[in-house]
């Protein structure tokens, strides 16, 4: 397999506070990777460094062997698409126009037939056909999230970064969004898509991710398959909770039942 993204010895500081330290991992083409970690572990910061929204304090991020810091923003956006947790704006556009913004890296000014078709197909793929001409700010949280994902898909990027895509959604919408991301990664595309998803729901990560990066205090505690990473010891260390792990079977995914918080000494 080809390495799509290679993060080496990455560190990021907010002033004197160390947010990320010595982070190192790779993502292969066509992989679904989840980042888990407690609040403030550096999940969002890591995604923002990869997308050049933030500049790392040290270390290197390579995309297809090319250093991301040496690439300009427009070039990066042709390869990487970032889906923020949510967006709020004083101005609104139609859903079609918001998704069309995903074509921005590929067009200079006027929109071509291919761009229109790409947006239309993406809206259909995400079940947003009926919303195409509705105002973005009049949609529910789940619908908005789907629109932002549609914008990322229309961007034709090979790496999709999701910052807690299910945090504000109800259960049905959470499942729907994760299934859509999974379909994107697994379907046969012209460009093979990989996804790096920062998420709080460990069961969602266990069910959908090929691999998990477990962040703890700014560093990767462990990375690997869900069964290897999501152990009682790791979860109690990172999240400070006791839990029970039900192993993956042919019909059910790996399941984590959180039992209680640990007191300071136990942790």
């Amino acid at each position: 397999m080809n390495s799509l993204l290679h993060v080496q010895n990455l560190g990021f500081h907010w002033g004197k506070r160390k947010v990320l330290d010595e982070v190192q991992f790779e993502i292969q083409a066509g992989e679904f990777v989840a980042i888990l970690g407690e609040n403030g572990a550096g999940k969002s910061t890591l995604l923002k460094c990869i997308n050049k929204i933030l500049k790392p304090s040290y270390g290197e991020i390579s995309l297809n062997g090319k250093n991301v810091q040496s690439m300009d923003i427009i070039e990066i956006s042709k390869h990487i698409s970032y889906v923020p947790q949510s967006i709020s704006s004083q101005f609104s556009m139609s859903v079609f126009d918001v998704v069309m913004l995903g074509r921005r890296p590929h067009i200079t000014w006027s929109v071509g037939k291919n761009d229109l078709e790409k947006v239309s197909k993406t809206l259909k793929f995400l079940g947003l056909e009926d919303f195409a001409f509705r105002k973005f700010d009049q949609l529910s949280g789940g619908e908005r999230q789907r629109v932002i994902i549609a914008k990322a898909v229309a961007q034709d990027a090979s790496l999709l970064l999701f910052d807690e895509p299910t945090s504000d959604l109800d259960l049905k919408n959470q499942i729907q969004i994760m299934k859509k991301i999974n379909t994107l990664v697994s379907r046969e595309n012209e460009v093979q898509v990989s996804a790096l998803v920062a998420i709080h729901d460990i069961n969602m990560a266990a069910r959908f991710a090929d691999r998990i990066l477990l962040l703890h205090e700014g560093s990767i505690l462990q990375q690997g398959t869900p069964s290897n990473v999501l152990t009682e010891t790791n979860l109690s260390k990172v999240f400070g909770v006791t839990c029970e792990i039900e192993a993956k079977t042919e019909t059910t995914p790996l399941r984590i039942i959180v039992k209680d918080e640990m007191d300071g000494e136990e942790k």
Binding site: K48, N51, K52, I53, I73, I74, E75, I76, S77, K78, I80, S81, Y82, V83, P84, I87, S88, S89, Q90, F91, S92, M93, D97, V98, L101, G102, R104, P105, F136, K151, A152, Q155
Partner: peptide, 15 residues
């Protein structure tokens, strides 16, 4: 368009 609809992070992600 990108800046007014989604703010800075969203704009960066669209180049």
């Amino acid at each position: 368009n990108a800046l007014s609809i989604g703010g800075d992070d969203f704009a960066i992600s669209t180049g």
